[in-house]
């Protein structure tokens, strides 16, 4: 008997929704309600028959009855709703403008969105993701990057320390050295990660932020490759009309060094508050790996050449979306986060 009842339930479950949907009037819906769940309805009848089912099968079947009953009731309720709307020609229709059931889909954090995009653009160009420790030794954070003790470039950042000789990395560049130590060229890596600066937290500054570091070392890598790679990146990451400019600069671990500016993404270069009326936004630093750095990892600078770059993403993301306070990224107010994607 169980099998028959189960079959019947399955049949009801299969047919009822379509039949109910096909109803053209509230009267038809009511008729189906009686047929299925009225005092003498088919589901009601099966429910009564449960008592006669063997004990070991009763719970399973009972559960199934409940399921089918809910399904039918749900459909009947919806069908009832749809007759509240009637078109001009007297035809009845469902209210398709009622919002659908909430589909719970989460979201990435805006900084992740930026990191993912950057990583994916460089992955397309053949870079592999690498990673390194945030509690870093002075050797990797400074010395092997051509910043011996007392080097003035150490003043370019204010660094947190957890012990003498142990800074929280102030840049993702130490990973360059660690990766080069691990392998021989070619090396082509991208390093998204958190870095720290000893700064007071304010609307414009946070004491930690995300950087993406890149390194490409091989035979015959030149400044022309650096330009080509970073131009390609900028054209894909920023709006299509963006212009890119390379401006000589200084970093202890690259020579020659360059800042890369893009035409302001808000005013397109005509000058606005965000670009401080310069028309340009400074977005990344780059350069050819200094031969001294190769010395620390035992690469022959006569044989290999390479370029490295690094960019902070927090400020760029702020500009991109007009975020006026960097702390929004770290507070995680759902009303802020839910605006992305």
């Amino acid at each position: 008997m169980t099998a028959e009842l189960r079959d019947e339930l399955d049949r009801i479950a299969a047919q009822a929704p379509a039949r109910i949907d096909a109803c053209a009037s509230p009267e038809e819906v009511e008729a189906l309600r009686v047929e299925y769940v009225g005092t003498k309805g088919s589901i009601t009848r099966i429910n009564k028959l449960l008592r006669e089912v063997p004990a070991d099968q009763r719970p399973g079947l009972g559960k199934r009855v409940g399921e089918v009953r809910s399904l039918v009731l749900q459909k009947l309720q919806e069908a009832g709703q749809k007759f509240q709307v009637e078109d001009g020609a007297g035809r009845q229709r469902i209210d398709i403008t009622l919002p659908g059931r909430t589909f719970l889909l989460g979201r990435r954090h805006p900084l992740t969105i930026a990191l993912d995009r950057i990583t994916s653009i460089f992955s397309d160009m053949g870079f592999t993701v690498a990673d390194g420790p945030e509690i870093e030794s002075e050797y990797y954070n400074f010395e092997a990057l051509n910043m011996p003790p007392d080097h003035p470039a150490r003043d370019m950042t204010d660094t947190y320390y957890v012990a003498p000789q142990w800074p929280l990395r102030s840049q993702t560049s130490p990973v360059q050295v660690r990766e080069m130590e691990k392998r021989r060229p070619p090396v082509r890596i991208i390093v998204p990660g958190k870095v720290y600066r000893n700064e007071d937290v304010s609307a414009r500054a946070m004491n930690q932020f995300f950087q993406v570091e890149g390194l490409y070392v091989d035979r015959n890598v030149t400044f022309a490759d650096l330009k080509g790679t970073l131009e390609t990146f900028c054209r894909r990451f920023f709006p299509p009309k963006t212009r890119v400019r390379f401006r000589p600069s200084y970093f202890p671990f690259t020579e020659p060094s360059t800042e890369v500016d893009v035409s302001c993404i808000l005013c397109n270069g005509s000058g606005c508050r965000v670009c401080k009326y310069a028309g340009w936004l400074e977005i990344l630093g780059a350069g050819m790996v200094d031969p001294n750095v190769f010395g620390f990892v035992d690469y022959d600078p006569e044989e290999y050449n390479g370029f490295a770059f690094g960019m902070g993403i927090d400020r760029t993301t702020m500009m991109r979306y007009g975020v006026d306070d960097i702390r929004h990224f770290w507070e995680n107010d759902m009303r802020f986060l839910s605006q992305f994607e």
Binding site: F127, V221, D225, R245, F246
Partner: peptide
Amino acid sequence: VEEIARIWGFDQIPSRVGGVGVPPEEAP
């Protein structure tokens, strides 16, 4: 080299794309 490059002008250096081609390793 850097002195020469910065005065000569970075914009005079051509851009090269596609000079790469080593298959990347898998990320850990």
